[in-house]
Write a protein that binds this DNA or RNA. Sequence first.
DNA 1: CATAACATGTAAATCGTTTTCATCACGTTT
DNA 2: AAACGTGATGAAAACGATTTACATGTTATG
Lengths: 338, 338
Amino acid sequence: MSKLGIKDIAAKANVSPATVSRVFSSPHLVSKKTLQKVQKVIDEAGYRPNRMGASLRTRRSGNIVAIIPDITKPVNAGIIRAIEQGAQSQGYSVLLGDTQGLEERERHYADLVGQGQADGILLFGDRIPFDIDPSRPLKEQIPPLVNGNERIDTDEIVQVAVDNVSASQAAIEHLLSLGHRRIAAVTGPDNVPSSNERLQGYTQALAKAGIDFDDKLLVQAEYDVETGMRAANKLLLLKDRPTAVFCFNDDMAIGVMKLLQQQGFNVPADVSVMGFDDIHYAEFVTPSLTTVHQPLEEIGKACINSLIKQLNGQEVEAGRRFLPFTLKIRDSTGPAPK
Amino acid sequence: MSKLGIKDIAAKANVSPATVSRVFSSPHLVSKKTLQKVQKVIDEAGYRPNRMGASLRTRRSGNIVAIIPDITKPVNAGIIRAIEQGAQSQGYSVLLGDTQGLEERERHYADLVGQGQADGILLFGDRIPFDIDPSRPLKEQIPPLVNGNERIDTDEIVQVAVDNVSASQAAIEHLLSLGHRRIAAVTGPDNVPSSNERLQGYTQALAKAGIDFDDKLLVQAEYDVETGMRAANKLLLLKDRPTAVFCFNDDMAIGVMKLLQQQGFNVPADVSVMGFDDIHYAEFVTPSLTTVHQPLEEIGKACINSLIKQLNGQEVEAGRRFLPFTLKIRDSTGPAPK
DNA sequence: CATAACATGTAAATCGTTTTCATCACGTTT
DNA sequence: AAACGTGATGAAAACGATTTACATGTTATG
């Protein structure tokens, strides 16, 4: 690897370092002739300006850090794609941080901003990775930040997601419309806001339909396939079994279906199963999964756009912003058995 | 956000910047008393050293960039986890770059090293993202780099993967042992080395079993579910249909199964389906997918370890290194129908 | 022709660290 | 008492870019 600096290039091209710098950042200030001359030297030498030097001076890194609990979950696929694309188009690079849900690692990545390695944060979590003094305005204590998909309990930052309560309600209404009356719910961990909101939608929808709430039909799992299976197992042990199971994400729904099938049940003839997220695989499992579609690419796009606005010094209004969900009715839900 | 520098801290603590620096990087050179005094000021001010300044001086960023075609594919999950963990434990941070398979974006991320934002590259692709002069030794022209999972046609760099030829051979032998004689293959794009290697294993295994190669049983797809479905469709149109389909990755296998089921075929009673990779969902689709298990975490671990060795200036021997695969026999393969 | 206006280029300061080298205080050895 | 280590600290020079303020050269204007 070569290690030429701006001074070397300047020397080779018989100009000053400042001129070389201008060739990159404000070419309109350089005459056509020198521009070409310098450009030629740059190309020949394969010179790339050292970002460290530049960032040090400009106090901008051109990087955005995205803090994501589990990068490899398909639910994040669309978001990541949208983020990268939006960032790229505005001249930013994305540093993807996978936290495995650990606060320590969330803070580690958030720290990149403090260290000057990133200019802003795209967060997909339910807590702010900074120590906050509640008596002072939040905005003074955190860098430019947008939260997506999950929910943080403050209206001082920009948050983009679907309305989990309504979405969950719509899901239950779908099951009700198929004649189901005993509808179980497989929830996420009880400290996760999105799970609580979906639970809220569930209870509201049942209440509206005049159905008594039965907490035996509520099983907690951890947003993954394995615990989804375990949850289904618990439900099968009930003496009065549910005819439908609403899972708060698709992974758990896949687990529930798997276990039901293993135990000889037919989905949806015996039990209907519904998911949430609409991950790519939802369409391809057997039977294909009825689920709540989240506009993940749109969410990603909205997040990155809002963040870049903030970085450009534009004012953006804080608070939650809801994007519309849709129901994907597929083959895992059907009429309630009589 | 505060913006205190090392000089501010030094002033507050009545020491020189050098001492503050030493507190971070070589505390043993500082007396206990000053250490405590400085540490206290650092904590109170919430001071974090600016990485740009430090990197500029040390010419090391402490970052590793991982270049991955599609971060969100489950096949990469284990690799990413292992990388992050290995890096973290050695004091490195990982910048994850998702390229969507585009060479332009591969080069973009590779450029981070040239720009001083990263010290080395973990590549998961089939080409080197640099312009190479073939007449000169490769090592002089690229930064520390390890390639994983795919294959680049050179023995001058470290590469870690499973032996695709043998693995594919083992897969076919499994199908042969079940009595299958007409075994189709759904390949990846024809410019992808791993696909070609798996194809090689396929033909070799058939040859060894004395079965004539029939190119009608070869269908090309693109390593994803949708094209897997299309491939299955083509196979169903054959007048002499295969009794087993070996797909060169799990996504395509899931697609193949989906289409077969849609068309009323039973897997595995009518047709056996086999995959490759052993992604997490392979176990949970219905029927659960028989596949070739790649030790993805091990691959990730080996890659990061080798790279860090290189970064530490240790000599590592170039060339391919194979990690052992295993067969996961599940429910999607069964005896050939007579 | 003198002067203003503009285009172009330069020198030097600066960003926040690390690190070499020199200095200093102090106890030990001769 | 002189010489010598030793350990702790500070001063200052990098690292590689950007940018401000200024110097030059060129052209247009009165």
